[in-house]
Design a protein around this nucleic acid. Structure first.
Ligand SMILES: [Zn+2]
Ligand SMILES: [Zn+2]
Length: 741
DNA sequence: CGGAGATTATGG
DNA sequence: CATAATCTCCGC
C-alpha cells in the first residue's frame, strides 16, 4: 500500500512551519486534518496538529518519522475551522500554533466527574424480596425495588432520597446483591441553560405573543429567504432603530435556515447575554439551543461543544468565542450588536469577529447577518458601497415612538449656579416620574472605574509596583492591580508621605448613588455595576427586582443599558455623556454615539419616554446625532473624520506595541524601527506615527511604546510587520505585538 | 521552544 | 587543558 503523509504543526514551539510525518496503518482511518496528534519532534514527544494529508512528499523519506498516536481528550478541529485558522494566521501575522489554538478553544474534556454508582447484580425475584422483608431488611428492599426499575442509581441519591446509608450499601455489596461502581456521570448539558432560566423544563417557558412580524420585519426576512433559496449566501447589515425588533427578524431567519436542515451561530456580546436574551432564544428554539458563556465550567463548556458537534443543537448562542463552535452544517451567522467593542479580541491574534465570521461564512457557504442600531462606520460603509446588503427597520415594533431626547450643557448649569450632578431639567423630570410611579434609569457613561485609595495629605493614589496604574480596592481590604494581578494588603499609612489619612474614593456609580439618595430621599435606589454584581447571578436578581418595580431609580454603567428592557422606564438620564469621547482612539466618537443611542433607547419601550443627555461638549457630532437619533447624520460626520485622519475603513491601521524591561533599549529600538520604516521605499506611502507613549507606559515591569502605521493596502501592513520582526531579532530584550484594524 | 554540538570565556 | 557559559543551528 502507498504511504500516506501528514503535514503537522508542532504545538508550543517557535518553529512556525509544517513538518511531514508518516501516518501509520492503524491510524489511517482515524486521522483527519485538524486532528491533534502526538509526534516525536527532535528528541521530544510533542503535540501537533495535522493541517494536511497527502500521498506525496518532497521530503526525503528516510528522514520521516511516524505519527505516534492521536492526542485523546482533545476535540479534533473540523476542516472549516482549520481553514479558518490558516486564514487567521496569514491575516493577523500569527504563528500556525497560535492560530490553531485560537479556533479550538475547548482544550480538553477535563477529568469526567466520577461518582459512585450502584448497580443491580442479579435478577432479584419477588421471592428474594419477600424473604428480605421477612428479615425486616426494609432498606434493602427499598433499594432493590428502585434498582429493578432503573438498573443503576447514583449513591448520593440512594443515601439522601432512599435513606439507605453507606454501611447498608456495603453489606449488600458484600452479599452480592449490588455492586458499587464508578460511573462516568454525564450531567445533562441542558442543565446550565435551564438553571439560568430558573425552569426545570423547556415547556415551562411561556411564549410571549410578539411572534408576528410587522411589514418592515417581514420584508427583511423575505429578502433573506429569497436570497437563501436562490443560493446567494450574502452578508447583510440589519440596521434598525432601538426597539425595532431586530431580534425577531433574525430569529425568523434562523428558523428558516433550520427548516433547511442547517444550523446557526448567534453572537451576542457577553454583557448582553442576559436572562432576557437567553430566555427569548430558548422560547423559540427550546432544547435545540446551545448556550456558551463565561459562567460555564470547563466541563459544561465541553458538553455544549459536544452537543454542537453531534448536531444536537440548531442554534448556538454565545459571545465572541462562540464563532469557533464546531458546527457541522452552518447556514447562518448572526452578529447582534455588531458595533460592540467586545467583538474585538484583545489578545493576539487581535481579530474582530466580524471579519472572522465573514471568512467562516465564506468557507462554509453560509450567510452572515450583522445587526445593530448603531453600526460601525466600517460596516455601514460596506452597505453604502453596496458590498453588503442593507436591511432597514425604521419603526419601533411596539407602536411606541422613539424617546424625546434633550441635551443639557452642564457648563450652563454651572453658570446658573447649579453645582449638583443633576441638571435642573433632569431633576424636575425625575421628580415627575417619581410622582407618577414610573421608573428612571441613570446611566453613568464610564467603564466601571473601581474604587482606588489615595492620600488626603499628599494626594498620591496608591500605584502598583509593577505597572503605571492605580490599584483598586477589593472588598477583602486588599489592593489589586488589574493589569498584573499584584495584590497587597491595604496599607495603614500613605506609602509616599507616611500620613495616616488615606481614604477610599468610591466609584463613579457609588458617588452617583449617594448623590441620588441625597437629592431624592424618598426614592428607592438600586445600583448595578461590577462591584455590586460580583456575586453569582445577582445581576439577574437585580434586574428582576427592578423589573418588578422594587426600585424607582436604577443606577449603573453599561451593564444596565445592554440586554434588558423595562416597560415602566420612561426616563433615562445620561450622566457625563462625554467621558467616552476623551479616550484617545479613533473609535471614541463611535463608542459615544453607540452608548448614548443605546441608553436613550431604553426609555419608553412600552410607553412614550424621554432621555436627558448631560454633557460638557454638547456641540460634538456624536452627541448631537445621538440626541437627534439620526444615524445618517452621525455616519456622514464620522466617515468624514475617518477620511481626514486616514482611519479605518478608509485606511487600514497597524498598531505596534513594542515592549521591554529596559527602558533605554526600548526607546532606542522603537526609534530605530520607525527610522528604518520611514527610510524604506516600499513603505514610504504609509503614514507612520510614533513612537509614542501608550496611556499606561509600564505594565508588569515592561515599558511600552506605540507605533501606528496606516496604509490603504492591508498587505503592505503585513510586510511591515515582517520587517519589524526582522529588525527585532537584533534586540534581545525587546518584543512587539501587532494589532491590525 | 529546547537539545546538541561548536565556540568562546575563564582560570590555573 | 578542563570546565562552564554562550552561541547557532535545526527538527520532518
Ligand atoms: Zn500591576
Ligand atoms: Zn501621602
Amino acid at each position: 500500500m502507498k504511504n500516506l503523509f501528514a503535514d503537522i504543526i508542532v504545538a508550543n514551539t517557535n518553529v512556525d512551519r509544517p513538518f511531514t510525518y508518516l501516518i501509520p496503518m492503524n491510524l489511517r482511518d482515524k486521522v483527519t486534518p485538524g486532528c491533534p496528534v502526538l509526534i516525536e519532534f527532535g528528541k521530544l514527544t510533542k503535540k501537533g496538529y495535522i493541517i494536511d494529508i497527502k500521498e506525496e512528499s518532497d521530503v526525503d523519506i528516510s528522514k520521516l518519522k511516524y505519527i505516534k498516536d492521536i492526542e485523546n481528550g482533545e476535540l479534533s478541529t473540523d476542516e472549516n475551522l482549520l481553514r479558518l485558522a490558516i486564514w487567521i494566521k496569514h491575516r493577523y501575522g500569527v504563528t500556525f500554533d497560535k492560530a490553531i489554538s485560537t479556533v479550538m478553544p475547548v482544550k480538553s474534556n477535563v477529568e469526567e466527574k466520577t461518582t459512585n454508582e450502584i448497580f443491580l447484580n442479579q435478577d432479584i425475584g419477588e421471592d428474594i424480596l419477600k424473604e428480605l422483608t421477612k428479615k425486616r431488611k426494609v432498606a434493602w428492599v427499598r433499594l432493590l425495588k428502585e434498582l429493578k426499575k432503573t438498573e443503576s442509581l447514583p449513591q448520593s441519591y440512594v443515601n439522601k432520597e432512599l435513606k439507605v446509608n453507606s454501611a447498608t450499601i456495603k453489606r449488600m455489596a458484600e452479599e452480592g446483591y449490588i455492586t458499587v461502581g464508578n460511573k462516568q456521570r454525564k450531567s445533562n448539558p441542558l442543565l446550565p441553560i435551564l438553571k439560568s432560566l430558573g425552569v426545570e423544563d423547556f415547556n415551562e417557558i411561556q411564549a410571549t405573543n410578539e411572534y408576528i412580524l410587522n411589514e418592515e420585519q417581514k420584508l427583511a426576512v423575505d429578502i433573506f429567504k429569497k436570497d437563501f433559496d436562490s443560493g446567494n449566501k450574502n452578508t447583510y447589515l440589519l440596521h434598525g432603530i432601538t426597539g425595532s425588533g431586530k431580534t425577531l427578524v433574525f430569529i425568523n431567519m434562523i428558523k428558516y435556515v433550520i427548516s433547511k436542515g442547517l444550523q446557526a451561530i448567534v453572537l451576542i456580546p457577553e454583557i448582553s447575554l442576559t436572562y432576557q436574551t437567553v430566555l427569548r432564544m430558548a422560547e423559540h428554539f427550546k432544547d435545540r439551543v446551545a448556550i456558551i458563556n463565561s459562567k460555564l465550567s470547563k466541563n459544561e463548556r465541553f458538553y455544549q461543544f459536544d452537543r454542537i458537534k453531534n448536531g444536537d443543537a440548531d442554534v448556538i448562542i454565545g459571545p465572541r468565542s462562540a464563532i469557533f463552535a464546531p458546527v457541522k452544517r452552518l447556514g447562518l451567522i448572526v452578529i447582534d450588536e455588531e458595533h460592540d467593542s467586545a467583538y474585538k479580541n484583545e489578545n493576539v491574534p487581535t481579530f474582530n469577529v466580524r471579519d472572522v465570521a465573514g471568512k467562516l461564512a465564506n468557507i462554509a457557504g453560509a450567510s452572515l447577518l450583522l445587526a445593530s442600531a448603531t453600526p460601525t462606520p466600517e460596516t455601514y460603509n460596506r452597505a453604502v458601497t453596496g458590498e453588503i446588503k442593507l436591511l432597514e427597520l425604521k419603526e419601533r415594533a411596539r407602536n411606541t415612538t422613539l424617546p424625546k431626547v434633550s441635551v443639557v450643557d452642564m457648563r450652563d448649569e454651572l453658570k446658573m449656579g447649579n453645582r449638583s450632578i443633576f441638571s435642573n431639567k433632569l431633576k424636575t423630570l425625575i421628580e415627575d416620574r417619581l410622582r407618577k410611579h414610573e421608573q428612571v434609569m441613570l446611566f453613568m457613561n464610564r467603564r466601571g472605574y473601581s474604587s482606588f485609595v489615595s492620600c488626603r495629605s499628599c494626594g498620591e493614589a496608591i500605584k502598583c509596583k509593577h505597572c503605571d496604574v492605580t490599584m483598586t480596592l477589593h472588598n477583602n481590604n486588599k489592593l489589586v492591580c488589574h493589569y498584573c494581578g499584584y495584590s497587597i494588603d491595604l496599607p495603614k499609612v500613605c506609602p509616599s508621605c507616611g500620613s495616616r489619612y488615606i481614604a477610599n474614593f468610591g466609584t463613579g456609580t457609588q458617588k452617583l448613588e449617594a448623590m441620588t439618595r441625597e437629592v431624592f430621599p424618598n426614592a428607592k435606589v438600586l445600583r448595578m455595576d461590577t462591584d455590586s454584581v460580583s456575586k453569582k447571578n445577582s445581576a439577574n436578581d437585580m434586574i428582576r427586582d427592578f423589573a418588578r418595580g422594587d426600585a424607582d431609580i436604577l443606577i449603573g454603567t453599561q451593564m444596565i443599558v445592554k440586554g434588558h428592557d423595562f416597560d415602566n422606564v420612561t426616563l433615562v438620564g445620561i450622566m457625563a455623556a462625554d467621558t467616552s469621547l476623551y479616550v484617545s482612539n479613533y473609535n471614541s466618537a463611535q463608542r459615544t454615539f453607540e452608548l448614548l443611542t443605546q441608553a436613550a433607547g431604553r426609555a419608553g419601550r412600552a410607553k412614550s419616554g424621554e432621555a436627558v443627555i448631560q454633557t460638557y461638549k454638547p456641540e460634538n457630532y456624536a452627541i448631537v446625532a445621538a440626541a437627534a437619533q439620526d444615524y445618517k447624520k452621525y455616519f456622514e460626520n464620522e466617515i468624514a473624520y475617518r477620511k481626514l485622519g486616514g482611519y479605518p475603513p478608509v485606511c487600514h491601521m497597524l498598531t505596534v506595541m513594542i515592549s521591554s524591561i529596559r527602558e533605554e533599549e526600548l526607546n532606542k529600538c522603537a526609534t530605530a524601527i520607525v527610522n528604518t520604516l520611514k527610510s524604506d521605499n516600499i513603505f514610504k506611502k504609509s503614514v507612520i506615527i510614533g513612537p509614542t507613549d501608550p496611556s499606561v507606559v509600564k505594565v508588569k515591569d515592561y515599558y511600552r511604546k506605540l507605533v501606528y502605521i496606516k496604509n490603504a493596502n492591508y498587505d503592505i501592513l503585513l510586510d511591515i510587520q515582517k520587517k519589524i520582526e526582522e529588525s527585532l531579532v537584533s534586540y534581545r530584550n525587546v518584543g512587539a505585538v501587532y494589532d491590525f484594524n
